[in-house]
Nucleic acid binder design. Structure first.
Length: 260
DNA sequence: ATACCTCCCTGTGGGC
DNA sequence: TGCCCACAGGGAGGTA
């Protein structure tokens, strides 16, 4: 689920629910989501500390807890962050709960535990994690973007989804962007002409803007994404039957008539 | 550089 | 009904 817009939403949750609050208690309900830190150390390092202003890079959410260390979330495919009241009953997939000094709780919920929560002891440790990622999709300049596509032999969808090149785009956003730009996801990136590459860049900005506002890729019927799971999906632009196949290792939906 | 594979987890839906 | 498999909006690491 979580791509850049979702994580931006979780940043908002963390900011409005937790920023400036002291973490009274850390409950690790399932240590399977902890990465490189034990429940014990997490408790020791986090309890009693105050949450600072969270930031996001790509699909990562980073929050200073004290100064340092830092909490670093990666939501994988099924993670989410919620603000709950202390009385609210736990969900089966609530893996970590941070109880704040106003008795509200930040809950990290994650069914599949494919990624998880890390504790970065220093700013340098955060930088090392971020070093694996390309620029955030929202910060990408047009010229850099065109240059990136022009230098890649791999399929354009693969480039959009490669976090080390562009951070934040996932499977749904990539399909949506390419559909809006009318570009076939299986085209080698460097074979796009400049006009096509510009369309992809513009589509990326438009799709991101709307999605960030919705804190998700909105399931609109006027968008490709709104038809992914229809039994007989039709292109909302031209009406042709949408096609589906594996591109760059992921299920890919596109319109064979209006994407070239 | 790039494509492919396996693995990490859990849950769901389809075919038999 | 049960069982087994493929698959799913994530990524890492290894191989050719």
């Amino acid at each position: 689920m979580p791509e850049l817009p979702d994580v931006e939403g979780y940043r908002d949750v963390l900011d409005s629910c937790g920023r400036g609050r002291c973490v009274r208690r850390v409950d690790v309900r399932d240590a399977g989501v902890l990465r490189g830190v034990t429940a014990r150390r997490l408790r020791r390092e986090v309890e009693g500390r105050r949450l600072g202003r969270p930031r996001r890079h790509g699909k990562l959410l980073i929050a200073p807890i004290g100064d340092p260390p830092y909490l670093v979330w990666h939501f994988g495919m099924t993670g989410e962050l919620l603000c709950a009241g202390a009385e609210d009953s736990f969900h089966a997939h609530d893996r970590v709960a941070l109880t704040l000094d106003d008795e509200r709780q930040l809950r990290y919920r994650d069914q599949r535990k494919l990624q998880g929560l890390r504790l970065a002891p220093t700013e340098e440790a955060v930088e090392r994690i971020l070093a694996r990622l390309g620029p955030d999709a929202l910060d990408f300049g047009r010229e850099d973007f065109l240059e990136l596509l022009a230098g890649r032999r791999g399929v354009v969808k693969g480039v959009l989804m490669d976090q080390s090149l562009i951070a934040g785009l996932g499977n749904l956003l990539s399909d949506e962007i390419l559909w809006r730009a009318r570009v076939d996801p299986g085209r080698p990136a460097r074979e796009l002409d400049e006009s096509e590459a510009r369309h992809v860049f513009t589509a990326m900005g438009g799709v991101l803007e709307t999605s960030v506002r919705a804190a998700r890729v909105p399931p609109r019927r006027t968008w490709l994404t709104g038809h992914r799971d229809d039994p007989e999906p039709a292109c909302p632009r031209c009406g042709a039957r949408l096609r589906s196949r594996r591109v760059a290792g992921r299920r890919t939906v596109w319109c064979g008539r209006c994407q070239h």
